[in-house]
Design a protein around this nucleic acid. Structure first.
Lengths: 242, 242
DNA sequence: CGAGTGGTTGATATCTTTCAACCCACGTGG
DNA sequence: CCACGTGGGTTGAAAGATATCAACCACTCG
């Protein structure tokens, strides 16, 4: 029994940047995986844990976050289906941040043993997975820069990036997508206050750039939004993305 | 002929987190490497390049930076001897940022072919290098959070982190170390203006926490500095560091 | 219908930037 | 041997972006 459906998006993503043959794809699809439904906000893995498995996002959105000493939550990244947010735990024993579900979601648990066996037997898959963690790092680098720009730029960048990543795996229809984040979530992801998120979103709506409401994003003017967000997709390293 | 001396710090770093046997160490020391002296500020590899080798910092400091559309330089990370700042170019064809020398430095160029041969033949070394890139990513994650804290906290964190990383490879004597950065460099690394760097440094001096002057850092009160910087070394994943 | 969640508004405070000087140590060439 | 230029650092005043605080509103759900 294989997980052909559950791994489809993962495979699509990996193939954007790495060459994999049929045996490689089969090996990925045959990874032993336990599907686990998680509810919105639920902790999937917590800072300080030493997990023995990694999680493939099969459906829904997840996020990684650090909780500061004063209790403030800093969202580090948003994850869409097909991504493995905690693949790094394969080599870093202790988790340095939490992994949580943003919306109700399904994750596929893959044991580190199975992953190790996969990378030991299939060097191309090993390279593809390593590469995947390197793109992850590249996105963090980009956000170090984004975090220094004004609030409107940050929002524009976040939305442009998510649209691009969804597009790359075929999850973006027309000019809008679902984004299950409250303004508080956005604030924690962008490093600003909910009040300010609210005001900037209003301005973006008024300017006809972006309509973000009731968990739905509508890209009113994607090119201008990218320009405002200083968004250059190079850092996503989606080699063969259209 | 081997590069036992040049790779000594690299090996020390890798062994903090990964188990390597004598053959592994020998293989690393025998990597073919071209030493190249670089002067302060010189570009080692530029955004957009598709390098065929990675650079080991043998002596001196390097940094990675992105140049924004308006010409502002964003320093992403500072690199000390023993680190391989652009190891990710092994799997990511196009560089998404510049690598430059901070001070006069020596880097060792190692071809990707040689690295690929090494990781294909020595799985433990492959895991150690992969892990190294994961720690790199972890540091970027931490800086996403640090970047949202007040200026004094950011400076305190930067200095505490560098001290910790230097310490882990035995490069930190007593309570001070050389840091070849001007206040403009610090500003670009911390996402603030040089003027503000100056004022905050003065305050830190006055408070007896940190004396940073003429390219020398003196940790006047390391514990209080760590507290101010909300520095928790977990994210450095230096498993066996003291 | 009341509670709760998510969103909105206004007034004020704070941190950081901006701008515009100015200082100092150092090296170099006339 | 001094004038000058330069890189790095310092200072003050004013402006700007965002945070904070404190309400208030709208919708949904049981």
């Amino acid at each position: 029994m294989t997980h052909a459906n559950d791994t489809e998006l993962l495979i699509r993503r990996l193939r954007l940047g790495s060459r994999l043959d049929q045996d490689d794809l089969r090996a990925i699809a045959q990874l032993p995986m336990t599907l686990r439904p998680v509810s919105a906000g639920q902790v999937i893995a917590a800072e300080g844990d030493c997990p023995q498995h990694s999680c493939l996002v099969v459906s829904g959105f997840c996020y990684r976050a650090k909780i500061a000493g004063d209790g403030r939550r800093h969202i580090l990244s948003i994850h869409i289906p097909g991504e493995i947010p905690d693949l790094q735990s394969l080599h870093l024993d202790v988790l340095d941040h939490d992994l949580r579900a943003l919306s109700a979601a399904t994750v596929g648990l893959v044991s580190h043993d199975a992953l190790r066996q996969l990378i030991d037997s299939r060097p191309r898959v090993a390279a593809a997975l390593w590469r995947d963690t390197l793109v992850d790092a590249s996105i963090f680098r980009e956000w170090i820069v984004v975090g220094r720009r004004p609030a409107a730029t940050r929002i524009a960048h976040l939305v442009s990036e998510l649209a691009q990543r969804l597009h790359a795996v075929g999850l973006l229809q027309d000019e809008s997508f679902e984004l299950p984040m409250t303004q508080v979530d956005l604030a924690d992801a962008l490093g600003m206050t909910p009040v300010h998120v609210n005001r900037v979103l209003q301005q973006l709506r008024k300017d006809g750039l972006l309509d973000l409401r009731r968990y739905v994003v509508r890209l009113a003017d994607a090119p201008r939004l990218k320009a405002l967000g200083e968004f250059d997709e190079l850092y996503l390293h989606q080699g063969r993305a259209m």
